[in-house]
């Protein structure tokens, strides 16, 4: 069993690395989207497109880095629409902002009011989304915690008490002990598969991202907890 656990952990490492990478990317996108309205408003304060970009780039926020990159690409000779489409890529909202900026560049000042309105609405929408996402992430982490820690811990606790009681009360029961231990281990793996599948569907992440956390942790907790509970 311990060899299997070790093997699983080794195989889970790349998936875990992927999970960390995904988490970091998500955090980066969140921070850009959060600061995007301010950068966009700073951009709208100027009637000249390039000055607007400079204004937004000078804010020193995650979103302002995008404006800085756009300026850099444009100074290297890339057409503005291409520079915008290359830098504003992280998420749908960010892409939408890039498209809008491209339109402001093409149509001139007539669309600057639309951009301003877009920035204000983006700010409202960020607040609303934060509330909805807080509820959703609460569900995600409760389920993850439940499958990885709580379920194996409860099973390990009751199972270790019953094992000890059975040794005293009826030594013949020890015959079925390996079967039950193996069945519980298989059950924990199946539970990890099921919960990871549902979590990955709900949160548009890869199945292995969740499985690489729940499977080894739950097996480890179940097999190690009895030593601490005695």
């Amino acid at each position: 069993m311990y060899e299997f656990l070790l093997l699983l952990s080794v195989f889970a490492l790349p998936a875990l690395a992927n999970a960390v990478k995904q988490f970091k990317t998500e955090r980066e996108i969140n921070s850009i989207e959060k600061t995007l309205p301010d950068a966009l408003l700073a951009f709208c304060n100027s009637t000249n497109f390039e000055t607007g970009l400079h204004n937004a780039a000078s804010l020193k926020t995650p979103a302002s880095i995008l404006f800085k990159k756009t300026l850099g690409l444009s100074q290297k000779g890339a057409p503005m629409s291409i520079a915008l489409s290359r830098t504003f890529v992280h998420s749908f909202t960010i892409q939408k902002t890039g498209n809008l900026l491209a339109k402001v560049y093409t149509n001139g000042n007539s669309d600057i009011q639309t951009a301003k309105q877009f920035a204000l609405e983006l700010s409202d929408s960020n607040n609303d989304r934060e509330q909805i996402e807080a509820d959703a992430s609460l569900q995600k982490y409760s389920l993850l915690l439940c499958c990885a820690l709580l379920v194996p811990l409860v099973i390990a606790f009751i199972y270790s008490i019953s094992t000890k009681a059975s040794v005293f009360l009826q030594p013949n029961a020890m015959v079925s002990l390996p079967i039950i231990t193996l069945s519980i281990n298989i059950y924990l793996i199946l539970l990890a598969v099921i919960s990871s599948y549902f979590l990955s569907k709900q949160f548009s992440a890869h199945f292995l991202t969740f499985f690489s956390i729940t499977a080894p942790v739950s097996l480890l907790v179940f097999n190690i907890a009895p030593f601490f509970l005695t």
């Binding site: 409860v154 099973i155 606790f157 009751i158 019953s162 059975s166 029961a173 002990l177 519980i184």
Partner: peptide, 10 residues
Amino acid sequence: PALFSAIALL
């Protein structure tokens, strides 16, 4: 499952 394992043993 925990209770079931207890029943299976005891």
